[in-house]
Computed example of a mutant assay.
Amino acid sequence: MAFPLVRHRRLRSTAGLRNLVRETNLSVNDFIAPIFVTEGSLIKEEISSMPGVYHWSLDTMEQELEEFAELGIQAVLVFGVPEHKDSTGTSAYDENGIVQKAIRKIKALHPEMVVIADTCLCQFTDHGHCGVVHTTECGAEIGNDDSLELLAKAAVSQAKAGADIIAPSNMMDGFVSAIRHALDEAGFANTPIMSYAVKYSSAYYGPFREAAHSTPQFGDRKTYQMDPANAREALREAQSDVEEGADFLMVKPGLAYLDIVRMLKDRYSLPIVIYNVSAEYSMVKAAALQGWIDERAIVLETLTGMKRAGADLIITYHAKDAARWLRGN
């Protein structure tokens, strides 16, 4: 009998051997946990399309933060749900806006926690778009440069509140440059920018829009978010952000865009972030509730796949569960 020249299975024969040769390792240090903070008091309200994810008021969110800290989750991404919305999203850059108040509260309770501020206008505008809307003869148009002015104001207000990282998600042209200049001018030259560099106009955002109350009131976001069919364009977007001073590059969503993560990882030396978005989370939760899948196995395999594709950091709603499972709980 002719034997195979190479026996790959030798290194798979025991758990110990598999552990020794494992190429990709998932750790709680890889996770960034989103948190949704809203005005009001005594609020802990589960988001119907995202089981296990809640709206928190400032007086109740300590419960969530304590759980993050106990599990070893070191970074949170803050989303605010404001009481007031208007056409230019003034609550986004209000010193007493919900995001700014949440940042101050988190830093007071857990000064060691890395607080990342999502910087956009969509949650704060009454039209739900990520910039200023202009009415033209051809219809509504999202203004780019005047939107940058407001986004820069929002970033500075978040940094003043104590944000460790600014994470602009608006996809306006030149947003990294505008925010970098504004932060530097305001004395925050050492505050990093985690750019949503490659953000696609995706169907995977549905549950998030319920969570953030940010569904556009007309049209869609296809004139500023990327076409899911395009890959080379992602490199142009990322290159612009690198040249403008980004400190991290993010790809959003995750599962359908792992090829883009690998492209960025191979080309750039900056840390690569992937956003394991709301529908990716909700689909797993829905299937698990039906008993169709092993939730733990699916989640850990998915997150490991994201790291293997090249992600250094993973924003995920699975953060708490994954942290427990990695502990063996």
Results as ranks from 00 to 15, higher is better:
Ser214Glu: 07
Gly328Cys: 07
Gly219Thr: 01
Phe31Arg: 06
Glu66Val: 04
Lys101Tyr: 03
Thr90Asp: 13
Gln74Lys: 13
Ser202Val: 05
Thr125Ile: 14
Glu83Cys: 00
Val261Glu: 04
Ala102Thr: 15
Pro228Leu: 07
Gly174Ile: 12
Gly52Phe: 15
Glu112Cys: 09
Asp146Asn: 11
Ala238Ile: 10
Ala178Trp: 14
Phe3His: 11
Val251Gln: 05
Tyr268Asn: 10
Leu249Asp: 00
Thr316Lys: 00
Arg12Gly: 00
Ser240Leu: 15
Tyr268His: 01
His318Asp: 12
Gly162Tyr: 10
Val261Asp: 02
Ser27Leu: 15
Gly128Glu: 06
Gly143Thr: 03
Val176Lys: 12
Asn19Lys: 07
Pro34Gly: 03
Ala229Phe: 01
Ala323Cys: 07
Thr90Ile: 12
Leu258His: 04
Gln123Met: 15
Glu39Arg: 00
Glu46Leu: 12
Ser147Arg: 14
Ser240Ala: 15
Val115Thr: 11
Ile116His: 10
Glu301Phe: 02
Leu270Glu: 00
Gly305Pro: 01
Gly40Ile: 14
Asp59Ser: 08
Glu233Met: 14
Ala182Lys: 13
Asp259Gly: 12
Phe79Val: 08
Met50Trp: 14
Met50Gln: 03
Val156Lys: 02
Lys222Gln: 09
Gly131Phe: 13
Ala75Tyr: 00
Val37Gln: 02
Ile43Leu: 05
Leu249Phe: 07
Ala323Met: 09
Glu237Pro: 04
Thr90Cys: 10
Gly305His: 11
Arg296Ser: 12
Gly139Leu: 10
Lys153Tyr: 08
Phe124His: 14
Glu233Cys: 03
Ile43Ala: 08
Glu280His: 03
Glu70Arg: 15
Ile165Thr: 04
Arg209Val: 09
Phe124Cys: 02
Met61Asp: 06
Gln63Trp: 02
Ser48Trp: 02
Met194His: 05
Leu26Tyr: 11
Lys252Arg: 06
Phe68Ile: 01
Arg236Phe: 10
Ile103Ser: 06
Ala203Thr: 12
Thr215Ile: 04
Cys130Glu: 10
Arg262Asn: 13
Leu255Arg: 09
Thr302His: 04
Asp312Ile: 13
Val132Leu: 12
Arg180Val: 06
Gly206Tyr: 11
Glu45Ser: 08
Thr88Val: 12
Arg180Asp: 07
Lys252Tyr: 11
Ile260Gln: 07
Ser202Tyr: 02
Thr304Met: 13
Asn19Leu: 15
Asp94Met: 03
Leu121Val: 03
Val28Lys: 14
Lys160Leu: 11
Thr119Met: 10
His110Glu: 06
Met306Arg: 01
Tyr281Arg: 05
Arg308His: 12
Ser48Arg: 08
Pro111Thr: 03
Arg296Gly: 02
Lys85His: 02
Leu148Ser: 09
Thr38Ala: 12
